[in-house]
Amino acid sequence: MGGGEDVSWLNWLVWGFASTVFLTALMAGSQRLRLTRMNLPFLLGTMVTADRDKAKLYGVLMHLGNGLVFSLVYVGAFHAWGRASWWLGAVVGVVHAVFVLFVVLPVLPALHPRMARATQGPTEVRQLEPPGFLGLHYGMRTPVSMLVAHVSFGVLLGLLYRF
C-alpha cells in the first residue's frame, strides 16, 4: 500500500472492530435519544429475513462485518497518507457519511428486497419505509446523527490504529 508500510492486520482487526462497536452503540444511542429512526442492523437484517427479531440479530452481525470492511478502507487511506491521526480519520468519516447519505440511501429501495418504493407504494413483500432524501424519512436529525457517528468512527480509528 501507499506510504511504504505494510498493513498491520492485527491492528486493523482489533481497532476496526472496536470502532465499529462504538459506531453501532452511537447509532443505537441516537435512536434511543429520539434523534433518528435509522436502524442499520434492522435494515441489513431485513434483507435476509422477514422476522423482526431475527432481523435485528442478523443485522448486528452483518453490521459488525460491514464495519470491518469499511475500516479497511480507512486503514488504506491512512497508509496512503503515510500516517494515521484523529483528524485524518475524521476527514475519511465525513467522506464516508456523505457517500452513505448521497449514494447508498437513495439507491437503497432498489437494493433492499423488502423496501417499498415511493413511486409504486408498498407491495406484499416490499413494505419497509424508504429512507427518502438524506434519510429524512427516518427523522429530521438523521443526516446529522449519521455524520456524527461516522466522523466519530473515523476519529476513534485514527487515534487507535498504529502502523
Partner: peptide
C-alpha cells in the same frame, strides 16, 4: 425505533 413498515 426503526423504519416504518407500510402494509399494502
Amino acid at each position: 425505533d426503526a423504519p416504518a413498515v407500510l402494509p399494502p
